[in-house]
Computed example of a mutant assay.
Amino acid sequence: MHVAIIGGASTIGTTVAYTLSGLAPSVDVSLVDINEGAAWAHGTDIEHASYHFAHAPGAVPGHDTESVGTIRSATPDELGALDPDLLVFNAAAPQPDDATDPSAREAELERNLSIVRDVAEDLQSLDPTPLLVVTNPIDRLVYHFYTLLEWPRRCFIGYSLSETARMVDGIADLVDGHRNDVYCPMMGEHGEHMVPVFSRARVDGDPLDVTESERTELMEYVRDIPFDIAEERGVDETSRWVTSAGVSRVVRAMAAADDDVPIDGTPAGVEPAGDDWTFCLSTPLDGEYGFEDVSLGVPVDLDADGVAAIHEWDLADDESAELRRAYESVRADLP
């Protein structure tokens, strides 16, 4: 699999490449950036690091010299010649000083939309290719790419797994358990109107019972923690670690998918129980959940070509109402 990261010299782009070099060493990665020197420098440094991944005790499979991937750099003008299997869009305008304020997200669409239009022009020469959007506001930019490129909608995916990791961390603290035993899918908007599907949440396989006050506390934690982190660490660092791990999880799922058996997000070694462990990603909707002309986070299966299937879950009444609010929020910003 060949992954081209647009905005590859950025904090997230380089961290994704580094994570893939350790966890998915057979994947080829191209760091595509207007800053060619920085992309080359990061790519070369990551290639040097991959030597240590390969020779560490217990190295993951795929580090043999016959199957090891490459890390290279490229400019946007070279996108057409790269022939990638997956595009990761992570280019963004510089973050302002007030990016640690949750309300600042409202300005991200205006700042990043012109970049989306420019990149969409660069992508016109490619055959339809799965495109994973990581730049905020994710749901809105996914839909803009969908309308600009006119590729099949299964090609368009919006990353939204960081909220999942934050929510399970909050639940683990609440129940005094371990986060790796917790499952709680997050639908809706990547942002203010996220929808935790508590009706499907599990702790060590058992249903989760939370009070209204506990739900409120969990939502406040998930909404606030990325900004608390940014305030302490600086906006340039962004949520690089959780995002790169989540993006790598999506890439590895697509790389592992079989034409006959798409991946639903179930971890390796875990027997799925119905839709348990299915992950939610943003994708354009065409009637699913009663919505169209919008992109929202919904439960999906993935394969090498993108979204293989969208699951339509029976949601609790309050979850359905929250999902509609997410739809109205995102839809209000779209043409």
Score class of each variant (00 low, 15 high):
residue 136 N to F: 01
residue 159 Y to C: 02
residue 126 L to F: 07
residue 150 E to T: 11
residue 150 E to I: 06
residue 124 Q to V: 07
residue 169 D to V: 10
residue 104 A to N: 07
residue 175 V to Y: 09
residue 176 D to L: 05
residue 181 D to Y: 08
residue 161 L to H: 12
residue 157 I to K: 06
residue 133 V to G: 06
residue 179 R to I: 02
residue 170 G to L: 05
residue 131 L to G: 06
residue 144 H to L: 04
residue 112 N to S: 05
residue 125 S to I: 10
residue 153 R to D: 07
residue 186 M to Y: 01
residue 97 D to F: 04
residue 135 T to L: 00
residue 103 S to R: 08
residue 171 I to H: 13
residue 107 A to N: 09
residue 124 Q to R: 15
residue 114 S to A: 10
residue 131 L to D: 11
residue 124 Q to I: 00
residue 105 R to Y: 02
residue 130 P to S: 09
residue 102 P to W: 05
residue 166 R to S: 06
residue 187 M to N: 12
residue 137 P to I: 03
residue 146 Y to W: 15
residue 102 P to R: 12
residue 154 R to G: 02
residue 176 D to R: 13
residue 114 S to P: 03
residue 154 R to Y: 12
residue 110 E to I: 05
residue 100 T to H: 12
residue 183 Y to A: 02
residue 122 D to I: 00
residue 185 P to V: 03
residue 112 N to W: 07
residue 118 D to P: 01
residue 117 R to Q: 11
residue 110 E to D: 15
residue 160 S to N: 08
residue 114 S to L: 05
residue 105 R to F: 00
residue 126 L to T: 08
residue 108 E to Q: 07
residue 129 T to C: 10
residue 107 A to V: 01
residue 140 R to D: 08
residue 154 R to M: 08
residue 103 S to A: 13
residue 124 Q to Y: 04
residue 109 L to Y: 15
residue 106 E to Q: 13
residue 142 V to A: 12
residue 120 A to W: 09
residue 179 R to H: 05
residue 176 D to F: 10
residue 137 P to R: 07
residue 111 R to V: 02
residue 170 G to K: 11
residue 136 N to L: 00
residue 163 E to I: 01
residue 172 A to N: 14
residue 169 D to R: 15
residue 120 A to F: 09
residue 152 P to L: 09
residue 179 R to S: 11
residue 100 T to L: 01
residue 139 D to E: 11
residue 139 D to P: 04
residue 130 P to W: 09
residue 131 L to T: 11
residue 139 D to K: 13
residue 109 L to E: 10
residue 110 E to P: 03
residue 173 D to P: 08
residue 146 Y to V: 04
residue 116 V to L: 05
residue 113 L to I: 06
residue 128 P to T: 12
residue 161 L to Y: 13
residue 170 G to P: 03
residue 99 A to N: 12
residue 146 Y to E: 13
residue 108 E to Y: 14
residue 173 D to H: 11
residue 117 R to I: 00
residue 118 D to M: 04
